[in-house]
Simulated assay, not measured.
Amino acid sequence: MSVFVLVHGSWHDGSSSDDVPGYLRERGHEVHRPTVAGHGAGAPREVTHDGWVASITDYVDRHDLAGFVLVGHSWGGSVIARVAERVPDKVRRLVFLNAFVPANGTRVLDNAPAAYQELFPILAAQSGDNTVMLPFEVWRDAFIGDADLARARETYEMLTPEPLVPTVEKLDLTKFYASADVPRSYVLCGEDSALPPGDPEHGYLANARRLGTFRLVTLEGSHEVMLTNPALLANKLELAGRD
């Protein structure tokens, strides 16, 4: 039995209506799914990347967690990397799920394709509160292309605006890259085009290679496979998180 802490990605929160935790619990695992600061309906959006990280370390402390598998989806990869810097003795393994692994000293947004780097600040400037809401067309094709149109629309309604500020702060990941004490896995979804497939600089494998030695687990599915095939993802997370 493992303890999993699942850190969601952009536009999501800890109450995301997928069944991954249920499938993991059926296998006997303990599952936690905290909401990162600045996310969810009605949450204040004035937050920093340090605030993101603190919201997870505070959750870990409140629930007295240790020896857990820490999973980060999408930009959640930047969060779990910095959580591991702060509480390395509590994390058994890091699992990056089609996630950003930012190079030291870069911004999360630097690691995204040029189109997003240009679009997101424009959307934030138009929002009135410096947040980004992903256009449905991008969600439908790049993020959840393995869903039918009805499911794509249903899941889009679950999303909330994403704070821009934490994604444009330069991150000091010196400790993360200096130590490999916490084992690392990368889960790669083969039908995910949120980042350009095969892009040598911004693709998922480019992010994964920054981990050094890591376990690679692959599956078919989009960036939002937790919403389209949660049973398969739960199985793959179990493989990624095992000793």
Score class of each variant (00 low, 15 high):
residue 1 M to W: 00
residue 2 S to H: 12
residue 6 L to S: 02
residue 8 H to W: 12
residue 12 H to W: 10
residue 13 D to K: 10
residue 13 D to A: 15
residue 13 D to C: 14
residue 15 S to L: 13
residue 15 S to K: 13
residue 17 S to P: 13
residue 24 L to A: 05
residue 27 R to I: 01
residue 28 G to T: 04
residue 28 G to M: 11
residue 30 E to T: 14
residue 33 R to F: 00
residue 34 P to A: 11
residue 38 G to E: 04
residue 40 G to F: 10
residue 41 A to N: 09
residue 44 P to N: 10
residue 50 D to W: 02
residue 50 D to A: 14
residue 51 G to A: 06
residue 53 V to I: 10
residue 61 D to E: 14
residue 61 D to C: 00
residue 63 H to W: 08
residue 64 D to I: 00
residue 66 A to K: 04
residue 68 F to G: 04
residue 73 H to E: 07
residue 73 H to L: 15
residue 73 H to D: 08
residue 75 W to P: 13
residue 86 R to I: 10
residue 90 K to V: 08
residue 91 V to A: 01
residue 98 N to Y: 02
residue 100 F to R: 07
residue 102 P to N: 10
residue 106 T to S: 14
residue 107 R to T: 14
residue 113 P to E: 08
residue 115 A to Y: 09
residue 121 P to G: 05
residue 125 A to K: 13
residue 127 S to R: 03
residue 136 F to A: 09
residue 141 D to V: 12
residue 150 A to D: 15
residue 156 Y to R: 12
residue 157 E to W: 10
residue 157 E to S: 15
residue 158 M to I: 08
residue 159 L to N: 10
residue 162 E to H: 15
residue 164 L to N: 03
residue 164 L to H: 08
residue 166 P to F: 05
residue 170 K to V: 12
residue 171 L to W: 04
residue 171 L to I: 02
residue 176 F to P: 00
residue 178 A to E: 14
residue 178 A to H: 03
residue 182 V to Y: 01
residue 183 P to Y: 05
residue 186 Y to V: 05
residue 186 Y to A: 01
residue 189 C to T: 10
residue 192 D to A: 08
residue 192 D to P: 04
residue 194 A to H: 03
residue 198 G to D: 05
residue 199 D to R: 07
residue 200 P to M: 00
residue 200 P to W: 01
residue 202 H to Q: 13
residue 205 L to A: 00
residue 207 N to V: 00
residue 216 L to M: 11
residue 223 H to Y: 09
residue 226 M to H: 12
residue 226 M to E: 07
residue 229 N to D: 15
residue 231 A to H: 13
residue 237 L to A: 01
residue 240 A to T: 02
